[in-house]
Design a protein around this nucleic acid. Structure first.
Length: 473
RNA sequence: GACCCGUUCGUCUAGCGGUCUAGGACAUCGCCCUUUCACGGCGAGAACACGGGUUCGAGUCCCGUACGGGUCGCCA
């Protein structure tokens, strides 16, 4: 894409023609036919961010014109997802606004009125019960903030259609259907009507709509309306480079919530997929995003979703949380794992887990064994310490020194273990790993000595003895 | 198949004609720190899809090819 063009289009502050700067109005227009998908959520985020950045209005409009596919459950899931992400809308379901209703299913009279205008202009006709809009026979150019100028002649392009079954092109009617025989209106039509009615100034949407945009422009022109500024953002693909589907890891927003991601972390990562601040900053608070996001930073090529990086970004957000917030947010994940959040050892344990998790959902995996009544031994961990040395001897030495330890503190335990190591002539390190496996079941985990303090002398010793039995069995 | 968009390390990206022996991040590997596990610090390997132009000079501009994605619905 020509850079001179991008700059010319992008570096303007939002205004239309020579009129004074007008208030930015963006919208997210989901169709309630499934879950809130990462692609949709990112589109919502970009629209939200753009509106915030320019002191504008972000609105939510529900595109439920397909009665057969739209469901109330789906709508709730989508709204919940947006709420969880913190992408609140200034106008839309639940909050109202001057341009409602915000459900397309409730706007039929408006669409009828607009249809009548096309009828009186002779721009539509009936075709087997459906209503078709006559597309103009001319080149229509989309001036896109991300993609530059894109030109298409709808009459030409629409006169042929690819038949997937026949695997070849067949004749087609280029005029677009805007109303079904059953009376339901079609996306292209209602989308344009509502963008006019709701005075949308900027349409930020997936690049999959780029080829549809000339149709929309033709409709805007038919209504004598100034179209909004379009910005088609690149798509997010799965790691294999194909369209993300609900089956792909990280595809569904509610799964982030369940896995213990932070909304700010998810927003941060979504922002990064297709946008960059142009410096080396990668971790942003929502406030920073609001201040820095702009269409000029959106690139034009598709990206592949990287769950590892998403987790890393979330981990960075977790690190920036205050201790109080971290503890409060961890509570539901403790409960879910059967850990009593009121247990007095919880704050300390969370402190030990804190810098080694990237999601809140990982916390029980790190410290859960502290609170459980039994230890489940990880086979490879056991095998690893077995081959490292005289395990039986080491455990026996640990039991010996720890059972007589009078000072059950970090320093006291360290001193005791050190003494045991000296007695049997091994290094401290040769004691710690077996001790870790014997008491916590795995070579991986939180800082061990503080864990032993939490465990208490009695539990520590019974676990060591239990492990001894296991070894002799 | 036609049309549209795109192509810098495995991945996300910086790069707006000389400052690019191409920078950052995730991931990977190594070292240091740590008497355990991590965190952290340091370092390594790793990219301009290809071919033509334009230019004194091209990752940056133009054309073509290849590859990837999208659209071609009485879905949105």
């Amino acid at each position: 894409m020509p850079h001179f063009f991008r700059r010319a289009v992008l570096d303007h502050s939002p205004r239309c023609g020579n009129f004074p700067a007008m208030t930015v109005r963006t919208r997210f227009a989901p169709s309630p036919t499934g879950f809130l998908h990462i692609g949709g959520a990112r589109t919502a985020l970009y629209n939200w961010l753009y509106a915030k950045r320019h002191g504008g209005t972000f609105l939510l409009r529900v595109e439920d014109t397909d009665a057969d596919r739209s469901t109330a459950e789906s709508m709730e899931i989508i709204l919940d997802g947006l709420r969880w992400l913190g992408l609140d809308w200034d106008e839309g379901p639940g909050v109202g606004g001057p341009f409602g209703p915000y459900f397309q299913s409730e706007r039929i009279e408006i669409y009828d009125r607009y249809l009548a205008r096309l009828e009186s202009a002779g721009l539509v006709y009936e075709d087997e019960g459906a209503i078709r809009f006559r597309v103009p026979d001319k080149v229509i150019t989309v001036s896109d903030s991300v993609c530059g100028d894109v030109s298409i002649n709808l009459k030409e392009a629409g006169s042929r259609r690819y038949d997937a079954d026949l695997k070849r092109e067949v004749e087609a009617n280029p005029d677009i259907v805007i109303k079904r025989p059953n009376g339901g209106y079609i996306f292209h039509f209602v989308n344009v009507v509502d963008d006019i009615e709701m005075q949308i100034t900027h349409v930020i949407r997936g690049e999959d709509h780029l080829s549809n945009t000339p149709k929309h422009l033709a409709l805007f022109e038919a209504f004598g309306a100034t179209p909004p500024q379009f910005a088609h953002i690149p798509l997010n693909l799965n790691p294999s480079g194909t369209k993300m589907s609900k089956r792909d890891q990280g595809a569904l927003i509610h799964e982030y919530q369940e896995a213990g991601f932070l909304p700010s972390g998810v927003n941060n990562y979504m922002a990064l997929l297709g946008w960059s601040a142009k410096d080396d900053q990668e971790i942003f608070t929502m406030e920073e995003l609001k201040a820095k996001f702009d269409l000029s930073g959106v690139n034009s090529s598709n990206s592949k979703f990287d769950f590892d990086k998403c987790r890393w970004v979330n981990g960075e957000h977790l690190k920036r949380l205050s201790t109080e917030d971290f503890v409060a947010l961890a509570v539901p994940f403790l409960s879910k794992a059967g850990i009593d959040p009121a247990d007095p050892r919880v704050p300390e344990a969370l402190g030990l887990a804190r810098d080694r998790v990237q999601t809140l959902g990982e916390i029980p995996g790190i410290i859960g064994t502290v609170f459980s009544s039994s230890v489940s031994y990880d086979e490879t961990s056991v095998a690893k310490v077995k081959e490292k040395g005289d395990l039986v001897n080491v455990i026996a030495a640990l039991v010996d020194v720890l059972s007589v330890a009078s000072d059950w503190t970090v320093d006291g335990i360290k001193a005791a273990v050190s003494e045991g190591a000296a007695t049997i002539g091994v290094k401290m390190g040769a004691m710690m790993l077996p001790c870790r496996v014997a008491t916590m079941g795995s070579t991986a985990g939180a800082d061990l000595v503080p864990v032993l303090v939490l465990l208490g002398k009695e539990t520590t010793l019974s676990r060591l003895r239990g492990f001894q039995e296991l070894l002799s069995a």
